[in-house]
Design a binder for these strands. Structure first.
Length: 288
DNA sequence: TTCCAGGTGTAAA
DNA sequence: TTTACACATGGA
């Protein structure tokens, strides 16, 4: 068990960071967050300025939660209007975690046209059934299965993880990643737009999933994923002439260009802060 | 029962 | 090039 003291000038809110829906393998149990990251079972909690954890070392925690990233500077750079200002006030301390590319890619393929609890369930099932068991601070946990494992699993067994029509997408993506083990390094070396195009060559990965993976795994902070919630918020506040509930490819392009111009190079942080307050920002719909 | 959820692929217009 | 529709799943 390790305890570190956070710098007073660098806000961090563990609860918001882990409950905002960016990562799918964390669960809060009796005051402790339990998760599996990069093959390690982690237990962590926050008490004011103190972070207490086991399962990993301090360097891992600092790296995963990007504790060395200057959050106040980022937040002041995106703080361009009253709507984002309110989100920043409410969620200050939310940080973008550094996810593993492979797990992140598969997770967001599993996140299309569905909801967060269902995604968590799918990812958990894949790990329990095909991952490697590891002993951790909270009993036996399961790593997220490597590409070659998912590639070798039968479609029927994958489908049993409640993947539905996404089964073939995950399967073919796993086959590609198995054949090209350096896929992530190659994407990381590209420019933002090129990396985006490269990710969209995976079956089941469109603009939204690509932007999520770029933002949450590859550290492209200009990525601005547009899901139904973000589309709704943009239509209701920033781009009122956006009509219709569906987000056409043209709408998507327009929104992400606007966001990049309006919020700047850390537009992805703005996206996550807006997403975090989605139930309040989208007044159009009743509580949710 | 119907609608909705961190959308995407495909065929038709 | 844009539009329309199907798609598995589960909670509200």
């Amino acid at each position: 068990m390790t305890t570190i003291t956070l710098r007073p000038d660098q806000p961090f809110d563990l609860d918001r960071t882990l409950s905002c829906g960016q990562a799918f393998r964390w669960e809060k149990v009796e005051g402790w967050w339990q998760g599996i990251v990069d093959g390690r079972a982690i237990r962590i909690r926050q008490d004011e300025r103190h972070l207490t954890f086991s399962g990993v070392d301090t360097g891992f925690v600092r790296d995963y939660f990007r504790l060395d990233q200057d959050l106040p500077a980022i937040l002041s750079s995106i703080d361009r209007d009253p709507v984002i200002a309110a989100a920043i006030r409410e969620c200050r301390g939310l940080r973008l975690a550094r996810q593993q590319p492979w797990e992140c890619l598969v997770s967001y393929i599993c996140a299309t046209n569905t909801n967060i609890p269902a995604v968590k369930r799918r990812v958990a099932l894949m790990a329990e059934r095909f991952g490697r068991p590891v002993d951790g601070p909270f009993g036996t946990a399961y790593t997220f299965p490597e590409p070659e494992v998912l590639a070798s699993v039968s479609r029927a067994d994958l489908r049993d993880c409640r993947l539905g029509y996404r089964t073939d997408y995950v399967s073919s993506t796993a086959a590609f990643a198995t054949e090209h083990p350096d896929w992530a390094e190659r994407i990381a070396a590209l420019t933002f737009e090129d990396a985006r195009q490269a990710l969209m060559e995976f079956r089941g990965v469109g603009p939204k999933a690509a932007d999520c993976v770029l933002l949450f795994a590859f550290g492209f902070f200009e990525a601005f994923p547009v899901d139904v919630w973000i589309h709704r918020i943009m239509a209701e506040t920033y781009l009122p002439d956006l009509t219709g509930k569906s987000c056409t490819p043209r709408d998507y392009e327009r929104i992400r260009r606007f966001a990049r111009d309006h919020f700047g190079e850390y537009a992805g942080y703005a996206q996550e802060y807006l997403y975090c307050v989605r139930d309040r920002a989208g007044q159009k719909r009743g509580g949710r």
